[in-house]
Simulated assay, not measured.
Amino acid sequence: MGKRLHTAFIVGLTLLACSFSALGSEGTLGANPVVAVEQKMMTTPQAVVLGVVEGLTEYLPVSSTGHLLLAEKIMGIGEDPYQSPAQREQTKEAVDAYTICIQAGAILAVLWLYFGRIKQILLGVVGKDSTGRRLLFNVTAGFLPAAVLGLLFNKVIKSYLFGPWPVVIAWLLGGLAILAVSWRNRKRNQGTRLGSLLEDMTWQMALIIGFAQCIAMWPGVSRSLVTIVGGLLVGLTMEAAVEYSFLLGVVTLGAATAYDTLKHGQLMLQTFDHYSLIVGVVVAFIAAVVSVKWMVSYLSRHGLEIFGYYRVAIAVATTVFLLTTKMIWIQ
C-alpha cells in the first residue's frame, strides 16, 4: 500500500507540474510576435492511442518516437491545411511537446516496478547504501553525454530528423543491426549468459553506454535498443543491461519531459487541453507497466532477434503506406 500511495503522489505532482508550468504565462501569448494557435482539442480516442503507443514502445527496442510520429500521421494530428505556415509550425511544436510530456507515464511505470532499486539509489544519496551510491554515479555518468549533446543539437534534430523517412531508415538499419548481432551471438555463445551484474558496473562502462544513447537522438533508432546493446557490448548480462537501460531512461526521459514542458507547455495546452494530457499520461503508465513486465520476461529467455524482424517489417510497411498515400494525394 505504501508503494502505491508513493506512486500516486508522484503521478499527482507530475500532472500538477505539467499543468502549472504550462499555464504560468497564460494570457500573455497575445504579446508574442508568433501567431497564436487556434484552439483545436485532441479527441479522447486520439489521446488514448498515443498513450498506448508511448507506453508500449518506450522501453522496447523499436523506437517510441518513430511509432508516435507514424500514429500522428495516420490520425492526422496537427495536419490542418487551413492553418497559416506560422500556425502549422506552432501546432507541430505543440504535438511534439505532447508526445514528450506523456513520457511521464512511462517514467512512473519504471518507478513503480523498480521501486526497490530507486529506494536503494535514494539511500545512496544520503550515504546509507554504497551500492546505491555507485549506481547513482553510474546513471549520472550515462546521462551526461545525452544532456550535453541534446542541448546543443536539439533544434537541428527536430528540424531535419523528425519526419517519416528518417524514421523508416533508422528502423530498417536498426533492425538489420539487431539481426546481425543476434546471428553472430547465436553462433559464438550458444545461449551463454556470462557478464557483469549491475552492482559490478564501472563508470567507464556507464559513460560508453551514455555515448551510445546519443545515437538514439535520431528518431527511429530507439534509446532502449542502443543502451541495451551498449550494455551487452561493455560486458553486462542481458538482465543488467535491461535494468540499467530502464534506470537511465528515467533520468533521460525525465529531463526531456521537464525541458519540453517548461518550454512548450503553455502552447501545448492551448492547442489541446488538460484532459488530453491526463489521459495520455495515465494510459501510457498502464501500457508501460504491461510492456516492461513482458519485455523483462521475454529478453531473459529469447534475446533481441524478434525486434530485428519487427523493425524491418514496420520499415517496409511504413514505406508502402507513405508511398501509397502520396500517390493517392497526387491523383
Rank of each mutant, 00 (worst) to 15 (best):
residue 148 V to R: 00
residue 187 K to F: 09
residue 250 V to T: 01
residue 229 V to G: 08
residue 67 H to V: 10
residue 243 E to L: 08
residue 212 A to L: 12
residue 305 E to M: 13
residue 225 L to V: 13
residue 132 G to L: 08
residue 303 G to W: 09
residue 44 T to Y: 11
residue 216 A to M: 07
residue 126 V to T: 13
residue 268 M to C: 11
residue 5 L to G: 14
residue 274 H to E: 10
residue 328 I to E: 06
residue 233 L to D: 01
residue 282 V to R: 11
residue 112 W to K: 04
residue 28 T to E: 12
residue 307 F to V: 06
residue 34 V to T: 08
residue 10 I to E: 09
residue 75 M to L: 11
residue 94 A to W: 00
residue 181 V to E: 04
residue 162 F to E: 02
residue 258 A to V: 13
residue 303 G to A: 11
residue 203 W to M: 11
residue 247 L to W: 07
residue 90 Q to E: 12
residue 207 L to W: 06
residue 220 G to W: 01
residue 95 V to P: 01
residue 87 Q to P: 03
residue 83 Q to G: 03
residue 286 I to H: 04
residue 263 K to M: 00
residue 32 N to S: 10
residue 283 V to I: 14
residue 265 G to K: 04
residue 166 P to G: 06
residue 190 Q to N: 14
residue 206 A to F: 08
residue 100 I to T: 10
residue 83 Q to P: 00
residue 179 L to Y: 03
residue 274 H to S: 14
residue 212 A to E: 07
residue 98 Y to Q: 01
residue 264 H to I: 03
residue 185 N to Q: 06
residue 161 L to P: 01
residue 123 L to C: 11
residue 273 D to H: 12
residue 192 T to N: 07
residue 265 G to H: 08
residue 4 R to M: 15
residue 142 G to E: 01
residue 262 L to K: 06
residue 285 F to K: 06
residue 5 L to I: 13
residue 61 P to G: 11
residue 311 R to A: 02
residue 36 A to P: 12
residue 103 Q to A: 13
residue 52 V to K: 01
residue 194 L to T: 12
residue 160 Y to M: 12
residue 296 V to C: 11
residue 300 S to Y: 02
residue 115 F to S: 09
residue 77 I to M: 05
residue 43 T to G: 15
residue 201 M to W: 10
residue 134 R to N: 12
residue 64 S to T: 09
residue 52 V to M: 06
residue 184 R to L: 03
residue 284 A to W: 00
residue 94 A to N: 00
residue 11 V to N: 07
residue 117 R to S: 10
residue 189 N to T: 10
residue 298 Y to M: 14
residue 113 L to Q: 07
residue 312 V to F: 07
residue 123 L to Y: 13
residue 266 Q to W: 01
residue 326 K to S: 14
residue 142 G to L: 02
residue 320 V to A: 08
residue 111 L to C: 15
residue 57 T to Y: 00
residue 194 L to Y: 04
residue 304 L to D: 08
residue 101 C to S: 15
residue 54 E to F: 00
residue 267 L to G: 04
residue 15 L to G: 10
residue 304 L to I: 11
